[in-house]
Design a protein around this nucleic acid. Sequence first.
RNA 1: GGGGCGGUAGCUCAAUUGGUUAGAGUACCGGACUGUCGAUCCGGUGGUUGCGGGUUCGAGUCCCGUCCGCCUCGCCA
Length: 617
Amino acid sequence: MLIRSHTCGQLRESHVGQTVRLNGWVNSYRDHGGLIFIDLRDRFGLTQIVFDRESGLAADMMASADKLRNEDVIAVEGAVRIRVGGENPKLDTGKVEVVVVALEILNKTDNPPFLPDDLGKLPNEELRLTHRYIDLRRPSMQRILALRHKVYQTTRRYFDENGFLEVETPILYKSTPEGAREFLVPNRHVPGSFYALPQSPQLFKQILMVAGCDRYMQICRCFRDEDPRADRQAEFTQIDLEMSFVRRDQVMATMEGFVRRLWKDVADVDVPPLQRMTYRRAMEDYGIDRPDTRYDLKIKDLSAFAAKMDFAIFKSALEKGKDRPAYNSKKGVVKALRVPGGAEKLTRKITDGYTDFVKTFGAGGVAVVKVIKGEDGQPKLDTGIAKFLEPLKAEFLALLGCQIGDTVLFVADVYAIATKAIGELRQKVARDMGLVPKPGAEGGPWNFLWVVDFPMFERNKETGKWVAMHHPFTSPNDDQMQAFLDADMDDEVTIEGIVSAGYDVVLNGQEIAGGSVRIHDRAVQSKVFALLGMTPEQAKEKFSFLLEALSYGAPPHAGVAFGLDRLIMNFAGTDNIRDVIAFPKTQTGADLMTRAPSPVPENQLRDVHIRSIAPAP
RNA sequence: GGGGCGGUAGCUCAAUUGGUUAGAGUACCGGACUGUCGAUCCGGUGGUUGCGGGUUCGAGUCCCGUCCGCCUCGCCA
């Protein structure tokens, strides 16, 4: 075989006169009869090679060259020269070409189902995933693979420099069915017993702290058997960290340093210091715990104002849970979103659509009013609920700081639903108003933000039980610890008010990292388990190893996990998580290339003491 | 589990809102061509309209079921 001397992205004017050998795929061919041009492709680029009947190429090789087609794999030998037909500025190698004197066909291809170029429309994703080995040849996909590699390398370098040890943790793990649904793996030796694949290495990394590792990191695979989304996959990758003898601020500083290094290395962007926002502020102003601050729309609570209105829909919403304390999920509220310039851009058709939109989050609808210019030149309320606002017009305009040309959107419901609905609506309105900047060539703008002071606990919507907002190993914040230990477990208002030592990094409305200071005291951990409704026996059955570890000299520790796939999505400028995973799965968990999952022979099931109750296909 | 969109030639799409033999570009096959660069020109092959029923004189088009993919709500400690 003609082993390559250079890659297809390498040759320049300085190589002119040299005899070189290239290997690669036929990216395109231009056949002029006695003269054939081929763009040869590998991961590193494209090089034009020329077959010329009049340049001494053997007749049989010329005949072979005539048969070359896209995606054939070949090796050639020839001399580098300045292009006779002039430069092609689109190629890095565009000043030169290789005049072939020897051709070796390494592998003829069948006619491929699609070509891996970035011209024109992509074939449908089903086909791309089925023939992933072709799809990944596409330069845009190669670029993402390289980006991902770069992130791995920068990550390992940064944490190594900061004293972290990379430690692998088990994939076959104990089932702890509190959080996401788990993937189960039967054990052959103990009939009826199962491992679970880890939702995250959470407890192992805490135990590594107890074990004296001091600082741990791992780029690890996590598994959650929940329905995927465009930015979510059942099998995904985290950059997982844990640190000993630190409090919240030390971890946050380490994370911020990492973010800064990563963006510098990968995108050559200098990230300014991150602002902090409390969870409460985020929910109040943005209706979501991961605000997108790239645009300046803010939500305002108008409950007190709305109570003065003679408008039945608001009144009945405010009646709900009216004896509950503020921010209680079941307390009725009225939320408003002022949209500058909305009076013109948000047509009746669009605002009508908002009602359907908020219904998907359980809200009843959206009330609308426009602020237009009256005959006297002053602001005038128009359409929708204008007549109900008219008696309180001055107060309304002042409360929201309305200008002529604004539209104001209202959602009235219990706190949990109204907040979620108007928070989602805010993001939709921003898209409709064209306020969301399109990522430029460098990906940005990059709006980072810390969100802190999350509640420790929230009520499960269906069961009404307390559940941990982050996870059950999250510590109350330092200034809350005594209040938590003293708290009566039946005192709903106090429990609800306990703030955890958790922290999230939010980027452009996306959670890219989350972590917390952990509980390192057995008594605190036991109280959390009890609050979550676990008896001491249940806690012991599920987490005895953790409770024991906490009893044998556990250092204060804290940690975090970054969603690696989402980081790459940002750098790659894609909103499809499958683009950043080499071999992703579909929405039903299928790998279309390997055809996993698949049935297994009966005897294989018997070995692991499993009988399938699935109906025969 | 719920809602929405989609599936027509290898690929990307069209097909007058139920009406003749389902078309175009590209790929592929054959031919021409010595300076192209998404080469060009000429000719050709290629279809179980995802699958199964139904309505109708007639179904790519309407109805029912089903499979697959995507988006989404729930879910994701």
